[in-house]
Design a protein around this nucleic acid. Structure first.
Length: 218
DNA sequence: AGTAGGATAATCT
DNA sequence: GATTATCCTACTG
C-alpha cells in the first residue's frame, strides 16, 4: 500500500493577488537542483485595476498566460537582460500575479554560486536577493512561461514552508514601478537578510543630442 | 551607507 | 521611438 503525503492546498492562489502574495512568503521553490525559501514578493492586479500591472491594458502576446489559470509561471524579460518570475493568481481571466522578488537559498548553494558568480562569488544572502538574481540562481528563463508550479510537469515546483514563519510580514510600496508606485503591495519577511533593498522608480532621460526633434507644442 | 549612471533589447504605441 | 516590475560598478562621505 502506497503511503502518500497529503497534497498541499494551493487554493489561495486562485484568490486576490495580495492574499496570495502573503501566503507565498516562507514557501519553497525548487528548480534545477536549487531550492529557495521566498522572503519577498509583490502583488499585481488585473485589467483596469492596477496601472503597474503588465495586464492593465488588456491581453498582449507577452502577458497571455496571466489571463489563464492560477498556479502557472509568468516569466518576462526586462531591461534587455533580466528574467523575472511571477505566479499567476486569481480565477481565469482576472490576469493578476505575484512577482517573486527575493529568496534565501536553502539547498544547492554550490550550483547557485556558480550560476551567480561574476568577478567574485556573492555572499549567500545575495544569491537570490532580487527578482533577476532569483531567476539566475534557479536557472529559469522565458521558456518556463506557462508551466505549472503545482503538478510536477514543469521545471519549477512550489513547495509548502518547512515550518511556520516566525518573522512578521511587512508591507510597503512596490520597487521600481513608475505607476501606482505607492500601492503597498510589496510584502516581505521583516528582518530577513535576503530581502532586497527598496528603490523607488527613477525616470530616465534620453541621452538627448540637443537636437530638438520634438514637435513643438507651444 | 547611500546614490548615480549605464548596459541592453523586447515590447507596445 | 519611448519605456522598462533590474543589476552592477563607481563614485561620495
Amino acid at each position: 500500500m502506497m503511503i502518500r503525503m497529503p497534497e498541499a492546498d494551493w487554493s489561495v492562489l486562485a484568490g486576490p493577488p495580495d492574499v496570495a502574495a502573503r501566503a507565498l512568503l516562507g514557501c519553497r521553490l525548487r528548480a534545477n537542483g536549487v531550492t529557495v525559501r521566498l522572503t519577498e514578493v509583490e502583488a499585481y492586479g488585473g485589467v483596469g485595476e492596477d496601472p503597474a500591472s503588465h495586464s492593465h491594458r488588456g491581453p498582449t502576446p507577452r502577458n497571455t498566460v496571466m489571463f489563464g489559470r492560477s498556479g502557472v509561471l509568468y516569466v518576462y524579460f526586462v531591461f534587455g537582460m533580466h528574467w523575472c518570475l511571477n505566479v499567476v493568481t486569481g480565477p481565469p481571466g482576472s490576469a493578476s500575479a505575484v512577482l517573486l522578488r527575493a529568496a534565501e537559498v536553502v539547498e544547492g548553494h554550490d550550483l547557485a554560486r556558480v550560476r551567480r558568480a561574476g568577478p567574485g562569488v556573492p555572499r549567500d544572502r545575495d544569491l537570490a536577493r532580487g527578482p533577476a538574481r532569483l531567476a539566475v540562481a534557479l536557472d529559469i528563463d522565458g521558456a518556463a512561461t506557462g508551466t505549472s508550479l503545482l503538478d510536477g510537469t514543469g521545471p519549477v515546483q512550489l513547495l509548502p514552508a518547512l515550518s511556520p514563519e516566525r518573522a512578521p510580514i511587512a508591507s510597503g510600496p512596490r520597487v521600481g514601478v513608475a505607476l501606482a508606485a505607492d500601492v503597498p503591495w510589496r510584502f516581505w519577511l521583516d528582518g530577513d537578510p535576503s530581502v532586497s533593498a527598496y528603490r523607488r522608480h527613477v525616470p530616465r532621460r534620453q541621452p538627448s543630442g540637443g537636437q530638438g526633434s520634438q514637435t513643438a507644442t507651444q
